[in-house]
């Protein structure tokens, strides 16, 4: 689907959104939206635009802000679409996509744990790869490789 058509169809499906679509090679495009319009964009993409499958969720630490992105897949056109949103510091957070794509659950837990992006109304936001009580976000650029002794966490929790 050409990017102009995509932008037009998104506006028709969700008139309140101010999302913009820019070309991204190999996909239908890269849809950038403000974080407060997240749920409307998710619903429009999953419903009218037909991107039924959420392939991955990830986060990027741009030091002055953070970015969250979603890669969604359409079975009809067999094409990917990337959704991305810039989240301001401090306390970057966005609405959870689990109400629209249930498979976002684990991906958002990982993104929350590794990049420190909060997901509002997530049903089960807890550690995925790290033990409970882990106090770092290892994929942030401010995270340095530590001496092993500094990284000891409380592993014995009753």
């Amino acid at each position: 689907m050409p990017t102009e058509d995509l932008a037009t169809r998104l506006r028709a499906a969700a008139p309140e959104t101010t999302a913009t679509v820019e070309p991204l090679p190999g996909t239908d495009g890269r849809l950038r939206f403000p974080p407060d319009q997240a749920l409307a964009v998710f619903r429009a993409c999953q419903g009218v635009l037909g991107y039924r499958h959420l392939s991955m969720v990830g986060g990027i630490d741009w030091v002055d802000h953070r970015e969250v992105f979603y890669l969604v897949w359409s079975d009809e056109t067999r094409r990917y679409l990337m959704l991305s949103s810039d989240l301001p510091l401090p306390a970057p957070h966005i609405e959870s996509a689990t109400a629209v794509w249930p498979s976002a659950n684990y991906h958002e837990r990982e993104t929350w744990e590794m990049v420190g992006i909060g997901f509002d109304h997530h049903p089960d936001l807890r550690h995925l790869l790290m033990p409970d009580g882990y106090q770092f976000n290892p994929l942030l650029r401010s995270f340095k490789l530590h001496e092993p002794e500094e990284l000891e966490v409380k592993v014995r929790h009753v």
């Binding site: 790869l129 290892p138 995270f143 530590h146 001496e147 002794e149 000891e152 592993v155």
Partner: peptide, 18 residues
């Protein structure tokens, strides 16, 4: 002793710590 992952954020640096 943790091997090549000794300074990684997720690896116990030697099981003798446990």
């Amino acid at each position: 002793g943790g091997g090549p992952f000794r300074t990684a954020y997720s690896v116990v640096p030697g099981v003798d710590k446990l």
